[in-house]
Simulated assay, not measured.
Amino acid sequence: MTKISSMEKITEQLDHVDVQGFTVIQVKYSEKSKAAHCIYIKEHNVREEDKCKPKATTLFLLNIPPYCNEEHLRHMFSTFGKVLRVYLHEKPSSGPPHKDVSKYFPTVKLHQGFKVAYIVFRKPDAIMRAKNNPYSKPLIISSEDPHKCTSTGMGKWCKNYEEERINVDELQQEIDTYMADYDARIEEEKQKAKDMEGVPDDDGWVTVSKHGKNKGIPWKESQEKKVTAREKKKRKDKELLNFYSFQIRETKREQIADLRKKFEEDKQRIALMKAARRFRPY
C-alpha cells in the first residue's frame, strides 16, 4: 500500500508528460468517473500541404476511445481556443474522412475501435495551450449526466437498436431518389452518345451506337428482336460447326486406322508370298 500511494502522489504532482514527441493528456468521461484514459497529442506536421488540416493550426491526436465522437472532442478542446473543424479517422490520413450519403446502403464500414483525430483551431496559440495542459488535470469528455447519457451502457445499446430499425418511408424515399438520379444519368449518357455519333475524336475515330439507317433514331423493339434472333442463330451455327468438325476429325482418325491395318495385312501377305517364292513384283 505504501508503494501505491507514493506512486499516486507522484502522478498527481506531474504537470507535463511526453512520450516520443507526444504530450500525454488524461481524459475522463464525466466528473464522477474514477478511471482516466490517456490520449496523445502533438502539432500536425506533414511534408505535403493539406488544405483541410493546416500545419500551424491543426492538432493531431492518438488513442481516441470508441465512445468519443466529434462533438466530445470539440467540447473538450474548445477550452483552449475556437475549434473550426474536427476529423476522426481509423488511421492517419490526409483530407477529410469519407462519409456515406446513404443511410441504408453504406459503402464504408464504420470503424468501432480506437481512432485518431485532427482538431483544427482558428489560431495557432491554441495548440500550445493544449500541449501545456497539466497531466494532473484531466479533460472531461461529456458534460451530460452519466445516469441520463445514451452513449454508454444500456442507453447506448438501446440507441443503436433504434438507429438500426428501418424506416420504410425514408428507405422508399432514398430508393426513389437513387433511381431518379440513375435514370437521369442514363439519359445523359444516351444523349451524349447521340451527340458524339458521326463526330471523329482527336485520333480520328468515330463513335458508332445502336441505331438504324436513319441516324439519331433508335432501334425499335422489333429490330432489337431481329438482331437478338440473328445473334442466337450465329451462336447455334457455330456450335453445330464445331460439332461437325469434331465428327470430321473422328472420321479421319478412323480412316487412318483402317489404312494402317490394311498396310500391315499387305506386309504380311507379301512376306508369305516371298516365302513361297511366288512374289513377282515385275
Rank of each mutant, 00 (worst) to 15 (best):
L59M: 15
H147E: 15
E90M: 08
E170W: 09
L139S: 01
M154H: 13
L62N: 12
T107Y: 11
P138H: 05
T107C: 11
M179Q: 07
V101W: 05
S143D: 09
S102D: 10
K131Y: 00
S94V: 01
D145S: 15
W157Q: 12
L171Q: 06
H72P: 04
T177C: 04
E71I: 09
P106E: 06
N69T: 01
T152D: 05
P134M: 01
G95N: 06
Y87A: 03
I166D: 05
A180E: 14
I64Q: 02
H75V: 03
N63L: 04
T152C: 09
P134G: 03
I166E: 10
G81H: 06
N133K: 13
R185E: 14
A130H: 04
Y161V: 03
A184H: 14
N160L: 15
E174F: 02
F60M: 10
A130R: 00
K109Q: 13
R74D: 06
S142D: 09
N160K: 11
A180D: 09
H75Y: 15
K103W: 06
L59T: 07
R165G: 05
L110Q: 11
T79K: 15
L73M: 15
I166V: 15
Q112V: 09
G113F: 07
E170K: 15
R74F: 03
M154F: 10
D169E: 15
D100I: 07
P134T: 01
L61A: 12
H98I: 13
D176R: 11
K137C: 08
I127A: 06
F80Y: 13
K115D: 02
Q173K: 11
H72G: 07
S78Q: 12
E144S: 13
L139Q: 00
H72T: 03
I127C: 09
T58H: 04
V108C: 10
R85K: 10
V101R: 12
C149N: 13
V108Q: 12
P66I: 07
T150S: 07
Q172G: 07
H147V: 07
S93T: 08
I140E: 02
C158D: 11
D181H: 09
T150D: 11
E70V: 10
H98R: 12
K137A: 10
Y118L: 11
V116K: 06
N63K: 14
Q173Y: 08
E174M: 02
Q112N: 09
C149M: 04
R122A: 14
A126M: 04
M76H: 02
A117V: 02
P106V: 06
E174R: 01
I141M: 11
L171V: 02
G81C: 07
T152A: 13
G81R: 04
H89I: 02
V101Q: 08
V168W: 08
E70N: 12
M154P: 03
Y104R: 14
S151V: 11
K131V: 04
T107Q: 14
S151E: 15
D125P: 05
K103N: 08
Y135D: 00
M179L: 13
S78N: 10
T79W: 03
R85T: 08
G113Y: 09
S136R: 14
L61H: 03
Y87M: 07
K148N: 11
K131S: 05
I64P: 02
G81Q: 06
K103F: 13
N63A: 11
R122F: 10
N160P: 00
L73K: 03
L171G: 02
H72M: 12
